[in-house]
Amino acid sequence: MIPGSFDYHSPSTVEEAVALLTSLGEDAKVLSGGQSLIPMMKLRLAEPAQLIDINGIAGLEYIREADGYLTIGALTREADLDKSELIQQKYPILHDTAHVIADPLVRNRATIGGNLAHGDPANDHPATMLAVRAEVVATGPNGARNIAIDDFFLGPLTTALAPNEILTEVRIPVPAQGSGGAYVKLERKVGDFAIAGVAAVVTLDGNGNCSAASIGLTNVGPTPIRAGAAEEALTGNALSTDAIAEAGRLAGEASQPTSDHRGSAEYKRAMVQELTIRALTKAKVRAEGGQ
């Protein structure tokens, strides 16, 4: 399949890319890893007249800790996240996530920035970013601003990015002592979008009680969903089997799945409930120092 015709731009700095976005207006689209956008262009679901390829911008591929944050450059490939020792050892929830995004070939191109900026509730990073309470950096003509992840996803394929802003960095607070997180995805086969996915982070206090919990849900609504009632139910209580089961029930209630070829809404809600239990159980083990 052949995409519609477009003018291709390959800026070498963020400033240049933002200037292009500003001058070219609504016809312009940013190309990052391209693993969602190019298929959409081939299917003519997207027909940007101006394509701004940011892959030539140096300095947007990095994974590092500084000032209490893990910062990840927007052009960091999923394969590099998947293989990063820092991520594997200190941020296993991120490794869980990157590891199950599409397949190895797609992960060699696909970027974390693109995964978020695309705004697709079926993508895996969004739920995880809700769970780790990330923020994203949007760079526009007036410089950079930070957007809390809870304010970022506005609807299907719609984010808080202004038309002339580029997502340049993802910022994740370094986890508090006694924290653990996990991402669990149910998929029909490798490479498919999730039937449902659940990201969970818990923090245990000195007595083993849950002092903080956060839960994000993949592909069961128009945006990634925060399971707020489940989080509240867990906070301040022991992470018992019963408490985790109740959180699963509440997360299932918070989901808004629709029936499609991946299953009925009822099935997906049941899967959210079970996956939440599994994600919380794994997060708890990790918070206690296990794998």
């Binding site: 291709y8 391209g34 190019i38 298929p39 390829d53 070939l105 191109r109």
Partner: peptide, 13 residues
């Protein structure tokens, strides 16, 4: 050096 799906990369890239 990286294995990629060449139906999902533009030649100009």
């Amino acid at each position: 050096g990286k294995a990629v799906k060449s139906c999902t990369v533009f030649a100009v890239q």
